[in-house]
Amino acid sequence: MSLRLYASTVEEALDRADARHWTQRPPRSHRARMKYLLQQIKGDHQALAALLATSADNIHDVLAGGTLTDAQAADTEREVLRRWQPQVRRRAHRTIVDNDGLMTVSFRAWFGFTAAVGTTDDPRLRFLTTSLCAPYPEQLFTARHRDAPETELHRILSEALAANYFNRRDTPNTLESVSLKQIDYLEFSY
C-alpha cells in the first residue's frame, strides 16, 4: 500500500479496511502489480491500458522494468487493492454480517442534516467516529462486491449515518436525511 493511510471515497475506504484481513501482502513493485492485473484480466493489454488510462506501450514498458507516473502508480495500486484476495475479503465480510458485527466509520467531511419539518443544520466540517449497525454493513459489502458506483456507496453510507445519528436503527427509511460532502478523510474498521 502507499504511504497515504486515509481514503477520500467510500470504495477506497472499504478496500483499505479489507486489507487488515489479508493473509498475504499484495504485489509491491510496479512490474509485479502490472503482472498481477494482467492475470486478473486474462492478459488483455488493451483492457488494462484502458482501465489505467494509459497506453498498451506503457504497460509493456513497465513490464520491461520501466516506471509509472505518480497518477498511474496510484491507479495501479487502487486496482490491485480492489482485486486482492477476494475470497478472504468475502469470508471476513460474511463473518461480520453473520455475527451481527458492527462497522465503525471515522470521517472528516462537510456533514449536514435535515430533521423535523422546518429545521435544518447546514453542512459544516466535522470529524465524527460512529458505529454502523445492521443492515448497513451488509448493504455496503454487497454493493462493493458487485462494483457499485461510488454514488451508490455514498448513498448507503449517508443512510447509515442518518439512522445512527438520529438513533433510528429500527426504521431505516426515516424522514431525516444526511448530506455528506467533500470527504477529506474516511476510514472503516471491522
Rank of each mutant, 00 (worst) to 15 (best):
L37Q: 05
L37K: 04
L37R: 06
Q40Y: 02
I41F: 00
K42N: 14
K42W: 07
G43I: 03
D44C: 06
A47I: 07
A49R: 02
A50T: 13
A50S: 13
A50H: 12
L51Q: 14
L51F: 03
L52W: 01
A53G: 10
A53L: 15
T54F: 09
T54D: 10
S55F: 10
S55K: 09
A56W: 00
A56D: 07
D57R: 14
D57H: 11
D57A: 15
I59R: 03
I59Y: 06
V62S: 05
V62T: 11
L63Q: 10
L63G: 04
A64P: 04
G65H: 10
G65L: 09
G66N: 00
T69Y: 08
D70I: 05
Q72E: 13
A73D: 14
A73H: 11
A73Q: 11
T76H: 11
E77L: 15
E77W: 08
V80I: 09
V80P: 02
L81N: 10
L81V: 06
R82E: 07
R83G: 00
Q85D: 07
Q85G: 04
P86G: 06
Q87K: 12
Q87M: 10
R90P: 00
R91W: 04
R91Q: 14
H93Y: 03
H93T: 00
R94T: 03
I96T: 05
I96W: 02
D98K: 02
D98R: 04
G101W: 06
G101V: 05
L102I: 10
L102W: 08
M103D: 02
F107Q: 08
F107C: 09
R108Y: 04
R108G: 01
R108I: 12
A109Y: 08
F111V: 04
G112R: 09
G112M: 08
T114Y: 09
T114L: 11
A115S: 13
A116M: 13
A116V: 14
V117Q: 15
V117M: 12
T119D: 14
R124C: 08
R124N: 06
L125W: 05
R126Y: 12
F127M: 10
F127R: 14
L128D: 02
T129A: 08
T129K: 10
T129S: 11
T129Y: 03
S131C: 15
S131M: 15
Y136S: 03
Q139T: 00
Q139D: 03
L140Y: 06
L140K: 05
F141N: 00
A143K: 01
H145E: 15
R146F: 03
R146C: 03
D147Q: 15
D147W: 13
D147P: 03
E150L: 06
T151H: 11
T151K: 11
E152G: 01
L153M: 01
R155Q: 14
L157F: 11
L157V: 10
L157R: 08
E159D: 13
E159Y: 02
A160R: 00
A160Q: 01
L161T: 01
A162P: 06
A163W: 00
A163F: 01
A163S: 12
N164S: 13
Y165F: 11
Y165L: 06
F166V: 05
F166P: 02
F166T: 11
